[in-house]
Design a protein around this nucleic acid. Structure first.
Length: 605
DNA sequence: ATAGGGTTAG
């Protein structure tokens, strides 16, 4: 159709089908022509011709025609908001539909503020908004986190009697969620007579964005219970994220199942969240498998797999994946570098870590944050460069936080540096973190050095501050139930069997050359007593329980609150080979995979 | 007669 005006093509002037004549609305023939033309319009150039034609037949003042002209221009893929604005400016008496359309256009282009301004213009010129006005407008408020305007607009919807409109309610939930006003979002949600899938999606997303993971899962349960089981993909991603943060593997796997059943072909976001879930819940293999089968990977996909490999002690592999990421032309950000540096620190790759740190600053222009310094302090400290770690803390341009002092303290404990350990501990005790673990570590250092006076002084100080030593516990999943074992606590209902098993295991292990390592039992008691204490560490109770209640050869997964002692580490290596089990243990920040008598951390942790 | 809610992950 080059060169000829669309309006010359007579077939375009015919309406597509017989117009429906309703008693309320009667379209003149000209209006019908106009509408039919606009429906076929495919470019701005054609639109301009139609615009001229409308001017010629004197319909510009007609709100209906102007509205549709603007709608076509503002909302189609090829449209231009600039042109829509110029048409809009020439309409003498714009009406609701025209304002709504203009607002939609602005929102579509990401000009959230413009949409708000237009709304207030609309009110000023006395045009009454309707139920179509608010969802668009509230989306703009949500994107701007404009709480005040959002609340004001909420008021307007009530005044107009729109509080019962499902779309308006869902938009309100979303708006309050994005503004961080969770109680207001819940208030709207709770008052709804009918909830749609999107209502549940909006309230779940609102909780997810605030990190209220537990509430997310509860709401998801409520949603299913109320017969609303067809959750949207995005909602399942929020649920998956909650599972990851709470490390509830079972629920995570179920969510993966729902995704498989209800959606075909996952997008990058779904796949990345799945990988993160599997990796953080201990299934590195599954995460890697998903990662390798991804059709498309982005910065975040690499980010989760790198920090996952780090968490599981595969430092070299993490660095390999990092190089691959760079090869694929993806730029790392600060989070990726946290993963890379922690990979180096978990694997003891000191030179590589320092190299990466410089690369981050000079090649990729990323300002190191306190987290990056934290990784570096950890890297140096664990590797035995305690003094260098301390000097780094003193020279860094950011104020060190508790995490940094704690990692120095931990390094001092491992390498027996009392002087720096005391400095680190003093900094921790002066801050208001009130972490009993810090007192315990320092006092244990004194115990190890046989300084029993200092030991007593620190313990007394801890008690006088009202702090209680956190008891060590291990949790194990058996037949979809979680069982918790506390060190030396034999009050568990299944403990009879466990006690027997503990003895049986000990005999087996001794027979194969296991020697209890009592060096970490910091009590002023004899060797025999120390060995007795070691026997009932929570991890051993949990392993015994799992060996009794799971079938031969099935993997054992344990989660614990504190770092394991070196004896439990050795012990578990023996168990993995003697009982032919793969045992995964997660402590606060990393995983140990015991298999065939070795651990994935290669004894560096 | 035309039009409306969600892009979720590290």
């Amino acid at each position: 159709m080059t060169g000829t005006s669309v309006l010359n093509q007579t077939h375009l002037l015919l309406p597509a089908k017989e117009p429906i004549q309703s008693p309320e609305f009667h379209l003149s023939l000209k209006e019908q022509e106009c509408l039919s033309l606009l429906k076929r319009c495919k470019s701005v150039r054609e639109l301009k011709q139609i615009h001229v034609q409308i001017l010629k037949i004197g319909l510009l003042g007609d709100s209906f025609c102007a509205g549709n002209l603007v709608a076509t221009c503002a909302l189609s893929d090829w449209g231009s908001m600039d042109y829509a604005c110029s048409i809009f400016r020439h309409v003498k008496e714009p009406q609701t539909f025209l304002f709504n359309t203009m607002m939609r256009g602005h929102v579509k282009d990401g000009n959230w503020g413009q949409a708000l301004i237009l709304y207030f213009d609309m009110l000023k010129s006395g045009v009454e908004p309707d139920n179509f006005t608010y969802p668009v407008l509230l989306k703009a408020c949500a994107r701007l986190s404009a709480t005040e305007e959002g609340m004001q607009i909420h008021g307007h919807t009530s005044k107009l009697g729109l509080q019962g409109d499902l779309f308006v309610q869902n938009s309100l939930i979303n708006m309050y969620g994005k503004c961080g006003k969770i109680e207001l979002a819940c208030a709207v949600f709770d008052q709804m007579d009918q909830k749609s899938v999107a209502s549940w999606g909006a309230i779940i997303a609102a909780h997810a964005s605030l990190g209220m993971w537990w509430e997310c899962l509860v709401l998801f349960g409520d949603m299913n219970r109320e017969g609303c089981w067809r959750a949207e993909e995005s909602t399942l991603v929020s649920v998956l994220s909650a599972c990851t943060h709470l490390r509830v593997f079972d629920m995570g796997r179920c969510t993966h199942g729902s995704l498989l059943r209800n959606f075909s072909g996952f997008n990058v976001i779904v796949e990345t969240s799945l990988i993160d879930m599997y990796v953080k819940c201990g299934c590195l293999e599954k995460g890697l498998c998903l990662f390798h089968n991804m059709a498309k990977r982005n910065q975040l996909s690499f980010s989760v797999i790198i920090s996952g490999l780090a968490m599981h002690g595969h430092g070299r592999k993490a660095l390999e994946v990092f190089s691959k990421m760079l090869e694929e032309g993806l730029l790392p950000d600060d989070v990726v570098y946290v993963g890379v540096l922690s990979a180096c620190s978990h694997a003891g790759l000191v030179d590589e870590g320092l190299q990466c740190f410089n690369r981050m600053k000079f090649e990729h222009g990323i300002q190191p944050t306190v987290q990056h310094y934290g990784c570096l302090v950890d890297l140096l400290g664990r590797a035995g460069w305690v003094r260098a770690a301390f000097e780094l803390i003193e020279s860094m341009p950011i104020r060190p936080n508790d995490v940094i002092w704690r990692s120095l303290l931990s390094a001092c404990r491992i390498h027996g540096d009392m002087e720096l350990g005391e400095i680190a501990a003093r900094n921790l005790m002066q801050s208001n973190s009130r972490n009993p673990g810090d007192y315990v570590v320092l006092s244990n250092m004194y115990a190890k050095a046989q300084k029993w006076d200092d030991f007593a002084r620190v313990r007394t100080e801890m008690v006088s501050k009202g702090l209680v030593q956190t008891p060590g516990f291990s949790m194990v999943e058996v037949q979809r139930k979680v069982f918790k074992f506390v060190s030396h606590d034999m009050s568990h209902p299944q403990c009879d069997g466990v006690n027997e098993m503990i003895h049986q295991m000990e005999w087996q292990l001794r027979f194969d050359g296991y020697v209890p390592d009592t060096s970490q039992v910091l009590l002023d008691v004899d060797e025999e007593e120390k060995r007795e204490r070691l026997k009932y560490h929570s991890q051993k109770l949990a392993i015994a329980f799992a060996l009794i209640h799971t079938s031969q050869g099935s993997p054992v997964r344990i989660v614990r609150n504190l770092r394991m002692c070196s004896d439990c580490h050795t012990y578990t290596k023996f168990i993995s080979v003697i009982y032919g089990r793969e045992i995964t243990v997660r402590d606060r920040n990393q995983f140990h995979h015991f298999k065939d008598g070795t651990c994935s951390c290669r004894d560096y942790w």
